[in-house]
């Protein structure tokens, strides 16, 4: 690594001001677990890192919203989210997914906002949080806006965040009546980055699927929603037949990509199997009360 300047803003506004420059080597730095890898390999050589640790007191809380959803401060560590009693109650799929997300030490320092802003398509939380209907609140030089997580990513390691914008909160609607599951497949070793991540959420009313969200990551260039699989599920009985047809629709629709973890063709077959398994698991898990 080469030398750079590490600056410590005392407020969100000061951080935004520091980041509102036309220079890609000036970046925000929170847990740093992902950026450090890029810096060590020379993929990223910063001139200034804007360290957000000083904002933790105000931007790391986890709270249940009046509507029964969740508001999670962007600087909450993944460990604090994993063990939050509120998260366990409102969205139990999140702590289940955390068990196999990196490891305890990384989860101790990585922040939920950084995890999303990094734009890495292999991350586990973007599919999970988007399948729950999650959104991020973003603040920048132009003010505050809300972006659905399914629309946050514009490409491989690219997001729709603009100059000086920082994620301040992750919000989730109430999950009452929704059943969710996340499954990933690692093909090289158990702790490898996923080759495929599939997150599904279903709203089942009287045995029929009223609504669903089916998300795929890692096997595609960016987080991708699969509306054709959702169309198959809509109105169908929550059983094996609908699950198998949705899996076929997902495989037909997703644009998987080749990389060191497998060919596009292979990942399409993995997707077919994992959509089937994830839907089955969500149905077995049952709805959040």
């Amino acid at each position: 690594m080469r030398g750079f300047e590490l600056v410590h803003p005392a407020s969100l506004d000061e951080a935004i001001k520091l980041l509102d420059v036309d220079d890609p080597t000036v970046r925000p730095f929170s847990g740093g677990t992902a950026l450090m890898l890029m810096m060590k390999t020379g993929v990223f050589q910063p001139s200034i890192l804007v360290h957000l640790g000083g904002l933790e007191a105000e931007h790391a809380a986890v709270a249940v919203t009046p509507e029964g959803g969740l508001r999670i401060g962007a600087l909450a560590t993944l460990t604090s989210v994993e063990h939050s009693a509120e998260v366990v109650r409102v969205a139990p799929v999140i702590p289940r997914a955390m068990k196999r997300l990196a490891n305890v030490r990384v989860r101790n320092v990585a922040r939920i906002g950084g995890n999303l802003a990094h734009g890495d398509p292999h991350m586990d939380l973007p599919p999970v949080l988007s399948s729950l209907g999650g959104a991020v609140t973003v603040r920048g030089p132009g003010g505050t806006r809300s972006i659905p997580i399914e629309g946050l990513f514009s490409g491989y390691y690219e997001t729709v965040l603009t100059r000086g914008e920082l994620i301040t909160d992750v919000t989730l609607p109430s999950q009452r009546g929704w059943a969710s599951a996340y499954l990933k497949c690692t093909t090289r070793s158990a702790d490898d980055w996923p080759t495929l991540g599939v997150a599904v959420s279903l709203k089942v009313t009287d045995g029929a699927i009223a609504e669903s969200r089916v998300m795929v990551s890692a096997a595609t260039e960016k987080l991708t929603r699969l509306p054709s699989a959702e169309a198959v599920l809509k109105g169908a009985n929550a059983g094996e037949d609908a699950v198998a047809r949705a899996a076929d629709a997902a495989a037909a629709e997703a644009e998987t990509i080749d990389d060191a973890r497998g060919s596009a063709e292979y990942k399409t077959e993995l997707l077919r199997v994992y959509v089937k398994r994830a839907l089955g698991e969500a149905i077995r898990n049952g709805a959040v009360q």
């Binding site: 740093g32 450090m36 305890v104 030490r105 990384v106 101790n108 320092v109």
Partner: peptide, 8 residues
């Protein structure tokens, strides 16, 4: 607990 190698 943290990884020292990822800590500035």
């Amino acid at each position: 607990a943290v990884s020292g190698c990822l800590t500035l």
